[in-house]
Simulated assay, not measured.
Amino acid sequence: MTHLIKIGNSQGIRIPKPLIEQADLEGKDLQLQVVEGGLLISPKKPAREGWRESIKNTLENRGAESLDQEWLNAPLVTDDDWAW
């Protein structure tokens, strides 16, 4: 069990070492989320973490998507009368 403690103008908690080890939080940046009357503490994941492996697995299992030749071969036409 832990309690809120005053740290300057904020409050914090001390997390027992066994819980930190069990949750593999040692030395990691943490993300906090309010969930159903509680607080979820989880390690913050870097952007795009795991994307390379996911794409590789998708390509191995399903193959590459076929290219949409209709759009790729469409002529580039500019319409000077049209504006955003």
Score class of each variant (00 low, 15 high):
53 E>G: 06
52 R>V: 10
45 K>C: 00
57 N>R: 13
32 L>R: 11
47 A>H: 04
45 K>N: 01
31 Q>F: 14
33 Q>S: 15
47 A>P: 10
39 L>E: 03
45 K>S: 10
45 K>E: 12
40 L>R: 03
27 G>S: 09
59 L>P: 04
57 N>C: 02
42 S>H: 07
58 T>I: 08
22 Q>M: 12
49 E>I: 04
55 I>A: 12
46 P>D: 12
55 I>Y: 07
51 W>N: 10
57 N>M: 08
26 E>W: 04
31 Q>G: 01
23 A>R: 05
42 S>P: 02
37 G>E: 02
29 D>C: 07
42 S>I: 10
41 I>P: 03
25 L>A: 12
56 K>Q: 11
35 V>E: 14
49 E>L: 12
34 V>G: 05
32 L>H: 01
45 K>V: 13
54 S>H: 09
30 L>A: 15
59 L>N: 00
35 V>L: 10
22 Q>L: 15
55 I>C: 04
47 A>S: 11
46 P>Y: 00
59 L>H: 02
30 L>D: 15
48 R>M: 09
23 A>K: 09
56 K>M: 06
49 E>N: 02
43 P>N: 04
37 G>Y: 08
25 L>G: 05
26 E>H: 09
47 A>D: 09
44 K>H: 09
60 E>H: 03
32 L>T: 04
55 I>E: 06
31 Q>A: 01
35 V>I: 12
27 G>L: 10
39 L>R: 01
59 L>F: 03
56 K>V: 07
60 E>D: 10
57 N>E: 13
41 I>L: 08
51 W>T: 11
35 V>A: 14
34 V>P: 00
28 K>A: 08
42 S>K: 15
53 E>N: 05
39 L>H: 02
43 P>R: 08
59 L>A: 07
47 A>E: 13
49 E>P: 01
45 K>Y: 00
46 P>K: 11
60 E>Y: 05
55 I>D: 05
30 L>G: 15
40 L>Q: 09
39 L>V: 13
36 E>I: 03
46 P>A: 10
29 D>Q: 13
46 P>Q: 11
42 S>R: 15
59 L>R: 07
45 K>M: 11
33 Q>F: 01
59 L>T: 05
42 S>T: 13
28 K>R: 15
54 S>I: 09
25 L>W: 11
43 P>C: 08
49 E>M: 10
50 G>S: 02
26 E>T: 15
28 K>P: 14
34 V>S: 09
29 D>P: 10
47 A>R: 10
48 R>W: 04
57 N>V: 06
56 K>G: 00
50 G>V: 01
28 K>L: 15
56 K>Y: 07
30 L>C: 12
46 P>F: 00
38 G>L: 06
24 D>M: 12
31 Q>S: 07
47 A>I: 06
59 L>M: 10
36 E>W: 00
